[in-house]
Amino acid sequence: MPEQTAPPLGAAEMLADSGASVLHRILARVGILPLLMVVLIAIFGTIEPRFLAWQNIRTVGIQSVYLIIVSVAQTIVLLTGGFDLSVGSSIALTSIITGLVLIAANPDFFGIAQAVVAGVVTGTVIGAANGGVVSVFGVSPFIATLAMMSIASGAALVISGGVPIFNFPSEFSDTLATGSVLGVPAPWIVVGVVILLVYLTLSWTRFGRYLYAVGGNADAAHLSGVPVKRSLFFAYLLAGALTGVAGVMLTARVGSGEPNLGATVPLESIAAAVLGGVSLGGGEGTLLGAVLGAFFLVFLRNGMDLIRISSYVQMIVTGVLLIIAIVADRYIHGR
């Protein structure tokens, strides 16, 4: 019986690593967003110095609030392995309902509060309907939310008769769009509260853990005692409620109830989340990534506006970015 032993490995050999795997590790840690952000700043900062002026960045900060809120909502659903295509038409219906309540109610604080609640409830109901269809009946999120997109969009057009609702009391927009507390713009306060609440939910509660587990492996989650259906239901419900908040805020910004508001939001919110490293497969991604992804998209749009790239071309750019983000996601996660 021959037996032999060999000397141990040299430490230097163990350290040798290829360049490709270093790139892979960096991407796996932070995603492609930092890379794109550097490119964005370099290109637009060079062409148009105003791009990096504080005033412009502050403007982008306020403009991006709406997409950030929807992207956060989208992220909650993406984490469970689903997605929500109805966020756009949910915003439209929210806008119409908010508008109707607003012109019917008294033009005071209480009336505005009624309108805000009505809008958020609208989004929540849509989210609950999505969640019910996906969790109880096991319909694929794609079909369920695509159908809801059509339903909510149709409802917004039917209720409004296809025309915007005007004559809002000026206090509405003065408070929620242009108002501020101690110099902090109202949209920032709202988005700050949303991010804080969702952060606490995702990172510090059982429900948050369950969302990641359900998205990562629903079978394993089920066998671990996770209430899979209930978690899915509340994920869609929460996403709907946040979309309602975004709808109300956006309505205040445009100053009217718009039946076509938010049409580009489904694609943009998914693109933002995936750019921020949220996996389309579910189970992986961070809130911060989604927020930065949304900010990046709005910053990019702002840059393209500044150098007068048409909105049609901008649509193409958004689509290309989504594809880049998905390819990067697959590369990073080895699918």
Binding site: Y212, A220, S279
Partner: peptide
């Protein structure tokens, strides 16, 4: 296939079935 959520951490996999005992006032005692 059924035992682990492979994309999540060791901690999250280990405590997924016992989070109830690890929660204080609704938050996970990390």
């Amino acid at each position: 296939k059924e035992g682990l959520v492979l994309c999540r951490s060791v901690v999250e996999n280990m405590t997924i079935s016992s989070l109830k005992h690890l929660s204080r006032a609704g938050f996970i005692a990390k």
